[in-house]
Design a protein around this nucleic acid. Structure first.
Length: 509
RNA sequence: GGUGGUAUCGGCUAACGGUUAGGCCACAAGAUUCUCAAUCUUGCAAUCCGGGUUCGAUUCCCGGUACCACUACCA
């Protein structure tokens, strides 16, 4: 029987959650749910200098909006807390001491300035087996001096003692075995003097072990430090978890990792939710505010770097949970295809139930000055339903369905020019007479009657219908004409035709 | 510079030694139609290069190239 699946998503509260981070969280979540395991949210705030107020709340809100559920975390609680690293200082100190006592780590007194100078002086300087005896640390200095320095309160860090020239193998579920020689690794700082906190590497290993994390699923940028982590597990004598390094999300055009700037530059959000930077005051757009449905974002992200093994594209969270697998994750980075993202949203909107769509539409109607109370829920739902196949975003509903709520006051110039002929006003008057006795509730019957009139008089079908449309909609676009009039009703339709006759003026040729 | 990873249409990807190299997005054309969409049909378009292994390589191995990541008292 395999160990219980426990995974964690471990962001740093240094800003809004990046869309790439969202995908990492999603894959963790899918894997956990598939195996009936636990999803942990751990806040990795060991860099006190980069803390950004509001970032942690943002992460919680974003994951909640997307439906990525957390089983254990700062808010949710759990048996393995605290789930915020800054609250685990004592734990880390204990384990650093263990490493020190076992000779797996040592104390170093070199200041950041000294190290900087050294790097400037020696090209490709690395703090490792070949250089450490020339530095100021507990290995190179006499024991009494080390003790004296510590007693004198000299600032110092703890470094990991890397044994040179050993082939370290990282077992990765996506990439197979990756072998790295330990000589290229430096004696990483495990505990910082600057803010009296451990570095990511130490905190990460200790927490993953203590929290009994079974699978470490993270971005590919961590692959180079994975051997260091393997060595740390070994130094502690702990069993290492399964590693899974996900391919990165790349810029849509040029090269490199997808960044905040790309969103600004190319005009699409790179964050799930809108973010107001407390320092700069800048605002970054979010998927939610841009009119994306969370399920569309999830679906889109899931397929960026993974596929179900067949031709399916539209998949619900439940299907994703059922079919997700690392075997079908790609190894190469995926360029962020914003157009495809739009298509996913379009698909979800188009297939959405009218009532739910109506609820999303209401605030937009209000924003545009429509008194929602003037219309029934059924009316709003029907209007939204008629245009939903032509929208990419919720807010597009307004442009496509506004005429159901506000009669046109202006008429599209191009369409007027093409369809509003000299004889049109007379035709429209005739049309009114044709429509008057009809029951608009029966769209088919209305259409039949109008068609009979057009054909009986040998009128030009396109011109008549488009002129009709112009008076009712204001331009030549929209759903089927008699479905529109059915919803609008006879009084409103006739009034609009009258108004069109009175107000539409043919441009001088 | 060093180390590691990766490499199929413009983009996301399928084919896990044998296919006319498939699907989706985007783009183009056509069908449909009162318009705009939706829908359907069609088209466009790819195995980075060079060596091996093999009866046979997109697939396995090696080299090159390119791209990406990492190379902090950041995560």
């Amino acid at each position: 029987m395999d160990k219980k699946v426990r995974v964690r998503f471990a962001p740093s509260p240094t800003g809004p959650l990046h869309i790439g981070g969202v995908r990492t969280a999603l894959y963790n979540y899918l894997f956990a749910r598939q195996h009936g395991g636990s999803m942990i949210l751990r806040i990795e705030d060991t860099d006190s200098t980069r803390f950004v107020p509001g970032a942690e709340e943002y992460i919680n809100e974003a994951l909640q909006w997307l439906g990525i559920g957390i089983d254990e975390g700062v808010r949710e609680g759990g048996e393995y807390g605290p789930y915020k690293q800054s609250e685990r200082r004592d734990i880390y100190r204990r384990y650093v001491k263990q490493l020190l006592d076992n000779g797996k780590a040592y104390i170093a007194f070199d200041t950041p300035e000294e190290l900087e100078a050294k790097r400037a002086e020696v090209k490709n300087f690395q703090y490792d087996a070949s250089t450490r005896m020339g530095m100021r640390n507990s290995l190179s200095l006499p024991a009494e001096e080390v003790k004296a320095l510590i007693d004198a309160g000299e600032k110092h860090v703890v470094r990991f003692l890397i044994e040179p020239n050993r082939d370290v193998v990282v077992h990765d579920l996506i990439r197979g075995d990756v072998t790295i020689n330990s000589s290229i690794l430096d004696d990483k700082v495990l505990y910082k003097s600057a803010d009296d906190l451990p570095t990511y590497h130490l905190a990460n290993i200790v927490d993953d072990h203590l929290m009994e994390v079974s699978h470490v699923i993270r971005g590919e940028e961590w692959l180079p430090s994975a051997p260091l982590h393997v060595l740390l597990y070994e130094a502690f004598g702990w069993e290492e978890p399964q590693f899974v390094h996900l391919p990165l999300l790349l810029k849509p055009d040029g090269k490199g990792k997808l960044s905040k700037r790309d969103g600004d530059r190319l005009g699409f959000p790179v964050f799930p939710l809108e973010w107001h930077d407390p320092k700069s005051g800048d605002t970054s757009s979010g998927y939610r505010e841009a009119g994306y449905l969370p399920e569309a974002v999830i679906n889109f992200l899931a397929l960026l770097g993974w596929n179900p093994g067949d031709d399916r594209e539209i998949m619900s969270m439940d299907e994703l949970i059922r079919d997700f697998s690392f075997e079908h994750c790609s190894k190469s980075g995926a360029k962020f295809d914003f157009e495809k993202g739009k298509w996913f949203n379009h698909e979800y909107l188009m297939n959405m139930d009218n009532d739910r769509l109506a609820e999303l539409f209401k605030p937009i109607l209000t924003e545009n000055g429509v008194n929602v109370a003037d219309f029934s829920d059924e009316y709003i739902a029907a209007a939204a339903g008629m245009v939903k196949n032509r929208i990419n975003f919720v807010r597009d509903l307004w442009d496509n369905a506004r005429f159901f709520f506000v009669a046109p006051t202006t008429y599209a110039e191009k369409d007027v020019k093409k369809r509003w002929k000299e004889e049109t006003p007379q035709l429209m008057r005739e049309l009114i007479e044709v429509l008057k006795p009809l029951n608009f509730d029966d769209a088919v019957a209305t259409e039949e009657a109008v068609m009979e009139w057009i054909k009986g008089n040998e009128y030009h079908m396109g011109n008549v219908m488009n002129a009709f449309r112009l008076t009712v909609v204001g331009e030549c676009k929209g759903p089927h004409m008699f479905e529109i009039t059915q919803l609008l009703g006879k009084d409103e339709t006739l009034a609009r035709i009258e108004r069109g006759i009175a107000n539409i003026i043919r441009p001088e040729a």
